[in-house]
Amino acid sequence: MLYVKVKTEDGEELVLEVEGMTEDEIREELAKAGFKIEEIEVYEVEP
């Protein structure tokens, strides 16, 4: 499983499960949803 931890400019932290997306695609999708991203951390969790 691939997850991203996202910190927004307003200090909110989100953890999202993503599969088959690049970091650029993740940033693009979050921007479309109205999030202003300060930091993204991508990590993989073994089942």
Results as ranks from 00 to 15, higher is better:
residue 43 Y to G: 05
residue 39 E to M: 13
residue 11 G to D: 03
residue 19 E to D: 10
residue 15 V to A: 04
residue 25 E to F: 03
residue 7 K to Q: 06
residue 3 Y to L: 12
residue 22 T to W: 03
residue 34 G to C: 06
residue 23 E to H: 07
residue 21 M to E: 04
residue 27 R to D: 01
residue 20 G to C: 05
residue 7 K to F: 10
residue 44 E to A: 13
residue 36 K to E: 05
residue 47 P to K: 03
residue 12 E to I: 14
residue 31 A to K: 08
residue 28 E to G: 06
residue 29 E to D: 04
residue 32 K to C: 08
residue 22 T to H: 03
residue 46 E to L: 13
residue 10 D to L: 07
residue 38 E to R: 14
residue 41 E to D: 09
residue 17 E to D: 04
residue 10 D to K: 10
residue 8 T to E: 01
residue 4 V to R: 00
residue 10 D to W: 11
residue 27 R to N: 02
residue 36 K to I: 08
residue 25 E to T: 05
residue 16 L to G: 01
residue 28 E to T: 11
residue 23 E to W: 12
residue 23 E to R: 12
residue 45 V to Y: 14
residue 43 Y to H: 06
residue 13 E to L: 10
residue 30 L to Q: 00
residue 8 T to W: 06
residue 7 K to Y: 11
residue 35 F to D: 00
residue 3 Y to S: 05
residue 21 M to H: 06
residue 13 E to Y: 15
residue 34 G to M: 02
residue 18 V to T: 04
residue 31 A to G: 09
residue 2 L to F: 14
residue 37 I to P: 12
residue 1 M to E: 03
residue 46 E to H: 12
residue 9 E to D: 08
residue 23 E to V: 14
residue 12 E to P: 03
residue 28 E to S: 09
residue 11 G to K: 01
residue 6 V to F: 12
residue 9 E to N: 12
residue 12 E to K: 15
residue 20 G to P: 04
residue 14 L to I: 12
residue 23 E to F: 14
residue 14 L to K: 04
residue 32 K to S: 06
residue 3 Y to W: 14
residue 20 G to A: 07
residue 31 A to L: 12
residue 43 Y to W: 13
residue 5 K to P: 01
residue 41 E to P: 02
residue 39 E to F: 13
residue 35 F to Q: 01
residue 11 G to P: 00
residue 26 I to A: 05
residue 12 E to G: 11
residue 20 G to E: 03
residue 46 E to S: 10
residue 33 A to M: 15
residue 22 T to D: 06
residue 22 T to G: 04
residue 3 Y to G: 03
residue 8 T to Y: 09
residue 33 A to R: 15
residue 28 E to P: 01
residue 32 K to E: 05
residue 44 E to K: 07
residue 41 E to A: 10
residue 33 A to T: 06
residue 40 I to S: 02
residue 13 E to K: 03
residue 42 V to Q: 03
residue 42 V to R: 05
residue 29 E to C: 15
residue 31 A to E: 11
residue 17 E to I: 15
residue 32 K to L: 08
residue 40 I to K: 01
residue 36 K to D: 06
residue 7 K to D: 02
residue 32 K to F: 05
residue 11 G to R: 01
residue 10 D to P: 01
residue 5 K to L: 07
residue 17 E to S: 10
residue 22 T to Y: 03
residue 14 L to S: 02
residue 18 V to E: 00
residue 37 I to L: 07
residue 47 P to T: 11
residue 22 T to A: 03
residue 27 R to S: 02
residue 25 E to Q: 10
residue 46 E to I: 12
residue 43 Y to T: 05
residue 33 A to H: 13
residue 43 Y to C: 03
residue 47 P to H: 07
residue 21 M to I: 08
residue 12 E to V: 14
residue 18 V to Q: 01
residue 21 M to D: 02
residue 37 I to E: 05
residue 42 V to N: 03
residue 39 E to Q: 12
residue 38 E to V: 15
residue 5 K to W: 13
residue 30 L to A: 02
residue 43 Y to A: 04
residue 11 G to L: 02
residue 46 E to F: 13
residue 20 G to V: 05
residue 47 P to R: 02
residue 26 I to S: 00
residue 42 V to E: 03
residue 16 L to Q: 01
residue 35 F to T: 01
residue 2 L to V: 08
residue 30 L to D: 00
residue 33 A to S: 07
residue 25 E to M: 07
residue 8 T to M: 13
residue 11 G to A: 03
residue 47 P to W: 11
residue 41 E to G: 06
residue 34 G to R: 00
residue 10 D to V: 04
residue 1 M to G: 08
residue 38 E to D: 12
residue 43 Y to I: 08
residue 42 V to S: 04
residue 25 E to I: 04
residue 15 V to M: 11
residue 3 Y to F: 10
residue 37 I to N: 07
residue 32 K to I: 07
residue 26 I to Q: 01
residue 29 E to L: 15
residue 35 F to I: 11
residue 41 E to Y: 15
residue 31 A to W: 06
residue 30 L to N: 00
residue 39 E to I: 14
residue 3 Y to A: 05
residue 30 L to Y: 05
residue 33 A to V: 07
residue 21 M to C: 13
residue 31 A to C: 13
residue 10 D to Y: 11
residue 21 M to F: 08
residue 18 V to A: 03
residue 7 K to M: 07
